[in-house]
């Protein structure tokens, strides 16, 4: 494959067709990334993974019961499944000697297995299939009816979710900050850390569900963590970290679409691959926390210690 074919030719024709896909990929990654900042800082990234897997049976059951793809039953189903998962994890690890990591592993794989079986059994009736669970349906968005700015309804919805999440984070910045940094202390200034935690889990469920139809159940974890982790390597300020995570989403959505066009692959995994490349670049070259810095630092430190 030549340079031209990979880098130039994708941009030569019908770019407009990819505008909704790009917008959707950006909205999904940015919304997930904003919430993901708190998951990374609270070291509960894998709870995000667990929730995104376990909402599957909830979504499928909602599809079957409500007999439609409207978003309200889907959201309720997913929320119920998400809450059930948190409760089960809690139950297993507080009431037996099983440790938390194993409890998470047991719960979300079981929920997901139930979801996969339901999809295989009833998928045909609900226009859900295993491909949708894996890849999402980002690529089919372009063919939908355009409502506003050349964007279909589902993209507009995702955009509003992004706006709402951003607004909530701006409003409750202080509360989220304290309870993430030092939950025990948060209680002494009248912020209930458990309440904030559940609110965050609620945000998480909202973005996971709204992202589901676009990116499926498995890749969501990348959307949640990659932007935040990349930004975390680049800055020491929380607000800047959030801003950078949005920039990361923007760039990875852009190159995700590029990879999609160049290699004819699905957009969701392509966006993740683009995001991963950005992460690797940040990891290697980050001025303060990067790999290169790590090697030079450890060299500095060893000479320093010898001198002392």
């Amino acid at each position: 494959m030549s340079f031209y074919k990979i880098f130039i030719s994708p941009w030569e024709n019908h770019l407009s067709a990819y505008w909704p896909i790009f917008a959707m990929a950006f909205f999904v990654t940015a919304a997930c990334g904003l919430v993901g900042n708190y998951l990374v800082l609270r070291r509960i990234s894998l709870v995000g993974d667990a929730i995104s897997h376990s909402v599957l049976p909830g979504i499928v059951i909602a599809f079957i019961v409500a007999d439609s793809r409207s978003s309200l039953p889907m959201f309720i189903g997913a929320l119920v499944a998400g809450v059930l998962t948190t409760l089960l994890i809690e139950m297993i690890h507080s009431r037996s000697k099983i440790k938390q990591d194993a409890a998470i592993g047991i719960t979300f794989t079981t929920m997901f297995a139930i979801g996969v079986i339901l999809v295989s059994l009833y998928g045909a009736d609900t226009d859900l299939d295993l491909d949708c669970v894996l890849f999402g349906k980002l690529d089919f968005i372009a063919s939908k009816e355009k409502v506003f700015l050349g964007l279909p309804q589902i993209v507009i919805t995702m955009g509003s979710v992004l706006l709402i999440i951003a607004l909530l984070i701006v409003l409750f910045y202080k509360e989220l900050l304290v309870s993430s940094f030092d939950p025990n202390f948060a209680a002494t200034v009248g912020i209930k850390p458990r309440f904030v935690h559940y609110c965050l889990m609620c945000f998480l469920s909202i973005v996971v569900v709204s992202a589901f139809s676009a990116v499926g159940a498995i890749l969501v974890i990348a959307m949640l963590i990659l932007p935040a982790a990349t930004a975390y390597l680049l800055t020491d300020k929380l607000w800047l970290m959030m801003l950078l995570s949005i920039v990361h989403s923007l760039i990875s959505a852009f190159f995700g679409v590029h990879i999609t066009v160049a290699f004819q692959v699905s957009t969701a995994p392509a966006t993740v691959v683009a995001g991963m490349i950005l992460f690797l670049i940040a990891w290697i070259f980050s001025p303060n926390h990067g790999l290169l810095r790590y090697f030079t630092n450890s060299f500095d430190l060893s000479t320093f210690q010898k001198e002392n």
């Binding site: 409750f172 202080k174 940094f181 009248g190 800055t235 020491d236 300020k237 929380l238 800047l240």
Partner: peptide
């Protein structure tokens, strides 16, 4: 955690200022 020394000390004042309000 990506916060400055000032940010941490400011957290001490959060109890007096209400919800949402910024320091």
């Amino acid at each position: 955690f990506p916060v400055s020394v000032m940010d941490v000390v400011l957290m001490g004042c959060y109890g007096r200022s209400g919800l949402i309000k910024r320091p």
